[in-house]
Amino acid sequence: MKLLTYIERDGNRLGIRTEQGVIAVAEAASKAGIAAPRTIHEAIEGGAEALSALKKVEDYVLTAGHDAAESLLLSESALSLAPCVTAPSKIICVGLNYRKHAEETNAKIPEYPILFNKFPNTLTAHGRDVALPRATNKVDYEAELVIVIGKKTKYVSREEALHHVFGYCCVNDLSARDLQLRTPQWMLGKVCDDFSPLGPYVVTADEVGDPNTLAISCTVNGEVRQSSNTSDMIFPCDEIVSYISQHFTLEPGDIILTGTPEGVVLGYPPEKQVYLQDGDIVTIEIEKLGSITNRMVNEPT
């Protein structure tokens, strides 16, 4: 199931993306008399029972007659989307987690996952403009797979780790390289406003299957810059979730950014490094998860 969050005047609404359109969950559930989640976090926290209710809503709409379903199906292109996970309590990132990316940046292959964090101010959605901060002129793209935690998770084994995952989505882990490399701690280059475009959907784990066999790419103005597969991860998704859970508790709705493959601007020779500019269109695409596109714009003075 593909879940998204769209914005109406009275706030965020939960939608189910189908081939026929986006199901307006609140309206459809009310019409069908089904007690279903009304937000993405209710869906995540509700687990299997919540997903079962959403499936009933989906079936109700898709099997209804044309006239009955028409008012409950929205055109995706007409919607204003929010980040697909709207309020994670933690945004955890794994650095240098693709072997070829570590090699292109002349970095040592890490012995343990390199962890850092981002904050909710970095979240934005598919279709939104991202302002290039005035404090930097070296903003880089990073296509990444995101793990969305579905259960309270502490001390979980690798064998059980993926059973604690609700689903997956795409993110562009935008990075200001000059700020990132100013000190050994990367945070400053990672936490500028809107530096984590997230979406467009959370795709449930059952629909994704193995998260470490997915094609992943980034294009800038239609030019392919990154093209890889999540199988190149040094620490695969089950190991990441298990490792983090040995140190602190993961809560439903927490998100983990799992690292980026080769092809980032930082990996080019210095004379060929051209960072993101005003007007650049960046698209991150991951197999089974869809794609998220954002335009870079100069920050207003």
Rank of each mutant, 00 (worst) to 15 (best):
P133C: 08
L81G: 06
P110G: 03
L181K: 11
P133F: 07
E287V: 00
I23Y: 00
A87I: 09
T183Y: 07
A53I: 02
K154F: 14
Y243K: 11
R13H: 15
A53N: 10
R9V: 06
L198M: 11
K108S: 13
V156D: 10
I34W: 10
T301W: 15
N212R: 02
E159M: 06
A36V: 05
G33F: 05
L132M: 00
T122K: 04
A26D: 15
P37R: 00
T230L: 04
K108A: 12
E76M: 04
V265Y: 13
G253W: 03
I34T: 03
R17H: 11
I147Q: 03
S77W: 10
T63N: 10
L14H: 04
K2I: 03
Q20P: 00
G279V: 07
E287P: 00
K190R: 12
I216S: 08
L276E: 04
V25Q: 10
A29I: 07
A143F: 01
D278V: 08
L74H: 12
L51W: 00
L257A: 10
V25I: 12
K154I: 09
S217G: 09
T283G: 06
T5P: 05
K288S: 03
K108E: 15
G11L: 08
S75I: 10
C169N: 06
M296R: 09
L74R: 15
D129K: 15
F248N: 06
P110W: 01
T39D: 03
V130Q: 07
E285K: 07
P83A: 14
T293Y: 08
K151N: 04
L3P: 05
T105R: 14
Y98K: 03
D232Q: 15
E104A: 08
F116T: 12
P83S: 13
R177H: 06
L73Q: 05
